[in-house]
Simulated scan of single mutants.
Amino acid sequence: MKTWLRNNRGVLIFIVCLGLFRTAVADWNPVPTGSMRPTILEGDVVLVNRLAYDLKVPLTDFSLARLGEPQRGDIATFSSPKDGTRLIKRIVGLPGDTIEIRDNTLLVNGQPASYSNLDYVTEQPRPGVYVKATRVTEQVIGSRREVQFFSPAGPASSFGPVQVPNGEYFMMGDNRNNSEDSRYIGFVPRENLIGRAGRILVSADIKRDWSPRPERTFSRLNPE
């Protein structure tokens, strides 16, 4: 055993350093679900900046220092307050914000979002199930992104109003009628935030034939 450890010391050191790097500095996360469509697709692997918000002790949620403040519109990875599952959603509400959804219109602090660039698509949320979807550009309080809604919208078309507590955030998926987010799991405490997603590293069509999607490789999220 000692001989094996000595012969493979370089590889073991590299593995340990890579693990520490991924838990403290930057990480890459494959996305298996469509809750962030059309911004992030199933099969995208996103690059996550773990130093965007906090410097944490590797392998823990203990923060050593605050490095930046989460912003409305950030795409962030976090641990679900419901069951600890790692999720990726968009920060829609900051501490103190009042969030409401009224007939699929998002309101932040009473200000309704504006919607433009209407487009119609067909989505496949589950194998063999096809639904009509509407895609629009949503803009509210300086934050803009493309979102989509299924038709019919279903029970998620209205929510709140609720006020975001201090030190917590309201997260939503861009695929508004197919996302388990703060409407279901509750507010997300800051200590649950892992990092901010900035780019797509690689992408493959995992819903069909696993073919690569080179047009998405290293593309920025929210380039505007």
Rank of each mutant, 00 (worst) to 15 (best):
G93K: 08
T85V: 13
T85I: 03
T77E: 10
S79V: 01
R90Q: 09
L87G: 01
P81F: 14
I88F: 06
T77K: 02
T85G: 08
K82G: 01
I88A: 07
T77A: 14
L87H: 10
D74Q: 11
V92C: 00
G73C: 08
E69H: 15
G68T: 03
G93I: 06
G68F: 07
A65Q: 10
R66A: 05
L59T: 00
S80H: 10
R72T: 09
R90T: 09
R72N: 09
S80Q: 07
A76W: 13
L59Y: 15
R66I: 01
G84D: 05
S63C: 04
P81K: 13
E100F: 06
L67I: 03
G73W: 15
T98M: 02
P95A: 10
G68N: 02
L59W: 15
S63H: 11
G96L: 10
S63L: 00
L94F: 15
P95N: 13
A76K: 09
P95C: 05
R66S: 11
R90L: 04
G68M: 05
G96D: 04
L59Q: 00
R102F: 06
P81H: 14
D83E: 07
L59I: 08
R86C: 00
Q71G: 07
R86Y: 09
R72S: 02
D97H: 09
I99P: 05
P81I: 11
D61V: 01
R90K: 12
S63G: 05
G73R: 14
P70Y: 15
P81R: 14
K82I: 00
G73S: 09
G93T: 10
L67Y: 12
P95G: 07
D97W: 11
R86K: 10
R90A: 02
I75K: 09
A65W: 13
L64P: 01
Q71M: 11
Q71W: 08
G73D: 13
I88D: 03
I99F: 12
S79I: 00
G84T: 09
E100M: 03
F62E: 03
S80T: 03
R90G: 04
D83S: 05
I88M: 13
D61S: 15
S79W: 13
K89R: 12
G84R: 10
A65C: 00
V92W: 13
Q71T: 02
G68V: 03
R72K: 14
P81Y: 14
S80E: 08
L64D: 05
R86A: 02
P58G: 02
P58H: 08
S80K: 12
F62D: 00
K89V: 06
P95V: 06
T60M: 01
P95E: 10
I101N: 01
G84M: 04
T98G: 00
V92Q: 02
F62R: 10
G73A: 11
V92R: 04
L67F: 05
R102I: 04
F78R: 06
P81Q: 11
D83P: 01
I91D: 03
G84E: 04
S79Q: 15
D61E: 13
L64F: 06
I91L: 15
I91P: 03
R102G: 00
A76P: 01
G96S: 08
S63F: 11
G84L: 09
P95H: 14
L64K: 10
